[in-house]
Amino acid sequence: MLTKGIRINGLKKRYGKGETAVDALKGVDMQVAPGEVVGLIGPSGSGKSTLLKCLGAVIEPTAGQMTLGDEVIYDDGWKISDLRALRRDKIGFVFQAPYLIPFLDVTDNIALLPMLAGHPNNESRQRALELLKALDVAHRARAMPSHLSGGEQQRVAIARALINRPPVILADEPTAPLDSERALAVIRILNQMARQYETAVIVVTHDEKIVPTFRRIYHIRDGRTNEEAGEGRAFE
């Protein structure tokens, strides 16, 4: 039984009503342990993005159950009233493009979340700097996002996702714009951070070059998931 991480049982999502209704998710089961990085792979239209939006509490599923750490957050209906706070405190997001706030420097991009949650600015920035050191980009702490390379931007985005020590990180195609070397570096960092912060990481990807890095992979097709063991060789 998981004490942290994320567990999903029979998650369904239906768009529309009546004859035009579309079942995007038809009962997804998934379980990711703390410190584990799993891949979520599937063709276009298979329901990857819908699943990610449900997991990220951005859209409401139609049925099923989601447990985050010890807390049931969805059981045929949201069990938490403040989804915004849930996203801020318990879910980290890494996007295909880093989507850093262009008018904030690297440190403040990362420190923004705890600042918005009401933590003192200095304390938030200190935490951001620690993460930047861990991700080996501390030397760019005062730089603006537009002055960073693609790899650096993605590391900053990972730091932002980790700043509140969330039990789960959802990464949506995080390596898509990167070359093989940088893509593997990002996955390596995600693995390191997952272990270090005991965070469950779900990586949605099409990227063939990173697929062998996962120990477990969920294939999604027609709204259902199949679990299989991955090679996980890159980080042995």
């Binding site: 801020r88 997001f93 979340l113 949650a117």
Partner: peptide, 16 residues
């Protein structure tokens, strides 16, 4: 719009 979407996704309040 994209920055605002990100801000909302990561938990920024509407009033902020």
């Amino acid at each position: 719009v994209r920055e605002i979407a990100v801000l909302k996704l990561i938990g920024t309040r509407n009033r902020t």
